[in-house]
Write a protein that binds this DNA or RNA. Structure first.
Lengths: 242, 242
DNA sequence: ACAAGTTATAGTATATTTTACAATTACCAC
DNA sequence: GTGGTAATTGTAAAATATACTATAACTTGT
């Protein structure tokens, strides 16, 4: 018995279409983390068949009575213990044979976060849950390699068209930290002075009357994001290029 | 009996998960058309319950043995007679009660095309199929209003970050035509000279040794897109602003 | 206390791009 | 040819971007 209400005059129609209602839906959550040095991705090791022992992107089947957006948060929490965080939907994969257990269409979500604030611990069918460097990833379960690549392409694109960092950096940060984040994601180097000018000209950073402590050189000023302006830029977009 | 192969050692696992495999998947195809004047969207009128008589975005259930990308083309063709065209996936909607007949998750695709080249004619459950001005659209079936708005937001965003026009304009076109297309989609006006300079500086237009005919004023030079450069810009992106 | 090391921050001169127009050109119709 | 109309080119001023250089502010070692 499905949990979705069907009015009596539609029962016959539903009966006629029963053969169409045999899909499974899953959500997969590609979570990128940054700790000030490296960009990593949150993976789990599968403790069950199929693909037992393989690395996978945290994901699971959606139940009949939950919204897919809700499901993305629930599944991520179930497998890795991460709290409800905002996950952005990026893509849906629906090849016929992508899942050996039946026809499963998967909706991919992704999130960015500050690794230092979250410590994954495995549960449900995950035997392990950990952060892993992007360049250290080998074979993966299902078509998760493809999914990961789509998420990376999305991130790569996003960083050039919208501000990022809000979720990846500590609340207060230096321009050097922000620059390093950009350089890590885009795998390039920028001129320090020009990066500064570009960023400051966007008016998204609020300079604080504080500086770094405990560094063996001139301490940098700390900044934080202006949430209103940040949101504005997310909407409007820009082209980041140096 | 499902058409997807399941190896014998996974049968039990599949059995255990049977209650998850009761979803329907549909695809909805938002097709924007441009005829040199207006931007319109391809709609159908539903000839069957639920929502019989309502306007809807062309869409239908995916069968168990077809890829969702294939399905988007098949469904658009089935309902409106349009040939296989490239449809871009943009978003997936999965609210629990969005479909009255059962739990249906829908994957939304969209396309842009030159209205003059395609004449829709209804078939399957569509009793009508026609182009409609975006500002003339009233109530719609299901959550199709929301879907249409998502597609419009996508188009609005896309036009500012990638070249468009390849699919919307005749092979050879004038800069004024291209400008009018942009002005229509973005609902703004641009300076003619500056629009020209911006466009030409992108190196995506190849000037032809031909001009317009049968106009009562200085005839404009015709251009066509450089497909290689166009593809490059689609990949790289830009920020279009005047 | 001072020098050396290191990175942050500001500045600057030049090149490039954008903007808001004005001027000129090429066609048609009469 | 003249007038109407829109295409195309040009341009001066303003704004930005680029590739550096100079200076400031801290720490550590002597």
């Amino acid at each position: 018995m499905t949990q979705v209400q069907i009015s009596s005059d539609l029962q016959a129609e539903r009966k006629r279409l029963d053969s169409f209602f045999q899909f499974g839906i899953s959500v997969d959550c590609v979570v990128f983390g940054y700790d000030g040095q490296n960009l990593q991705v949150l993976l789990v090791e599968r403790g069950v068949e199929p693909y037992a022992g393989f690395e996978a992107i945290p994901g699971d089947l959606v139940t009949l009575n939950e919204d897919i957006t809700q499901a993305s948060k629930r599944v991520l929490h179930d497998l890795t213990g991460l709290p409800d965080i905002y996950l952005e939907q990026i893509n849906t994969f629906g090849a016929v044979h992508r899942h050996p257990i039946g026809r499963v269409v998967t909706v991919v979500y992704y999130a960015l976060l500050d690794k230092n604030l979250y410590n994954p611990h495995p549960s449900s069918w995950a035997s392990e849950a950990y952060w892993k460097n992007l360049d250290a990833i080998g074979e993966m379960a299902f078509d998760h390699r493809q999914i990961l690549e789509a998420a990376m392409a999305h991130l790569h694109h996003k960083v050039q068209h919208q501000p990022i960092g809000f979720e990846l950096l500590p609340e207060e940060f230096t321009l050097a930290q922000l620059q390093h984040l950009y350089e890590t994601i885009l795998n390039t180097a920028f001129d320090k002075g020009n990066f500064r000018k570009k960023m400051l000209s966007m008016n998204v950073l609020i300079p604080l009357d504080k500086t770094q402590k405990e560094v063996r050189h001139r301490p940098a000023r700390l900044f934080r994001f202006d949430p209103k302006r940040y949101e504005q830029l997310v909407q409007k977009g820009f082209l980041f290029e140096l």
